[in-house]
């Protein structure tokens, strides 16, 4: 049970500003994801929370009290590493016992805790194995067990699913979420994978170049990105962006629709003359790749778009020329100079 807070947090390595002034405040028991491309400073942020790096400036607080300067062993922060970092020379049981033994927890208490955590994570059969004899999924459970066994105030996860096979990743995601719902421990979840962040987290902070660009629920990030970086980073495939005057108009792939499908009472923000280049079948949907020939003269030659169609068979074919529109209420508007979101279509009309 803890509220994690960062205030004007900075970490500079020489001239590199890895973390460049970050503020956020978690809710109690919240799963807060830090999402960003590699080199965005998210790992440095996480390491400062864990106590592995000292901030250059600013403060980190847990329940209102600063933890800066406290060595990692006295912060009650448990971390699950990307590589899991299981101790290879001792058995799974000893791995799980390690944090308890290091904190001098009495033996009977140790046994009770280990029983409890192995029960929850269903790893009783693995206790006598060495870490080298575990599969990826098993290693992840053991790493989770080692982190959970000591009742931490705070979990810090460093891409804990990225070393798992793709097949078991979504299953592991579901298990992780239900586990965290049960333990109600505030969690900082660092990842570069937006599917993970959007799928798991209560709120997501999008980070780039050492700054948080936006923090909000997955829905907020998708529906109302605060700036062009978030607009381009969240969503797969990313948002299509068109320049018009001193504005940039953004349209999610599913918001590029055929002109004929536009309801009569809805105005179009953009009319695009598109040549379809190719189509991609993704099971539940089709992705349509096209080259824009007209409609947005300021975006320049060779602009390409990606549209999404959820039909069994697509109505378009490669090589066709077609008219696509963006309904006005679904278009997103950004200031071309600052890249910041304009508050909505009303502004553009006025």
């Amino acid at each position: 049970m803890a509220i994690l807070e960062a205030r004007q947090l900075k970490k500079h390595f020489g001239s590199i500003h890895a973390v460049d002034g970050i503020d956020f405040r978690s809710e109690d028991g919240e799963l807060l994801a830090i999402l960003g491309p590699s080199g965005s400073g998210k790992s440095t942020l996480m390491r400062m929370v864990a106590g592995l790096e000292e901030p250059t400036a600013g403060d980190i607080l847990v329940n209102g009290e600063s933890i800066v300067g406290i060595p990692p062993r006295r912060r009650n922060v448990a971390m699950v590493f990307q590589s899991f970092a299981l101790y290879p020379h001792i058995t799974v049981r000893e791995n799980i016992r390690f944090p308890l033994a290091a904190r001098k927890v009495p033996e009977t208490e140790q046994k009770r805790k280990i029983d409890w955590v192995t029960e929850i994570l269903d790893i009783r059969d693995l206790l006598d194995r060495r870490p080298s004899r575990l599969s990826g999924g098993q290693s992840q459970r053991v790493a989770l067990a080692r982190a959970m066994v000591r009742d931490p105030d705070l979990f810090v996860f460093d891409e804990p699913l990225s070393s798992l096979d793709a097949q078991i990743r979504s299953q592991a995601r579901g298990e992780l979420r239900s586990l965290l719902d049960r333990t109600q421990i505030t969690t900082l979840y660092v990842t570069h994978d937006q599917v993970e962040a959007l799928g798991l987290a209560d709120r997501v902070a999008v980070m780039q170049s050492g700054r948080i660009h936006q923090i909000g629920t997955p829905r907020e990030l998708y529906d109302a990105p605060a700036n062009l970086f978030v607009a381009g980073f969240i969503g797969d495939p990313p948002m299509n962006l068109f320049r018009q005057g001193d504005e940039i108009i953004g349209a999610r792939p599913e918001h590029l629709i055929a002109e004929a499908d536009l309801p009569d009472d809805v105005e179009a923000a953009l009319h695009l003359d598109v040549e379809i280049e190719h189509l991609e079948f993704l099971g539940s949907e089709w992705l349509i790749y096209g080259l824009v020939h007209g409609g947005v003269p300021e975006s320049g030659e060779g602009l390409r778009i990606i549209a999404r169609e959820r039909q069994e068979t697509p109505r378009l074919r490669a090589g066709e020329r077609t008219q696509l529109v963006v309904p006005r209420h679904q278009a997103q508007y950004f200031d071309a100079r600052s890249g910041m979101r304009k508050s909505g279509p009303e502004v553009a009309v006025a």
Partner: peptide, 15 residues
Amino acid sequence: VPQELDEAALLDGCT
């Protein structure tokens, strides 16, 4: 020896 092992031990309560 991966540095993450040292770090895991530091977080697990070791000096």
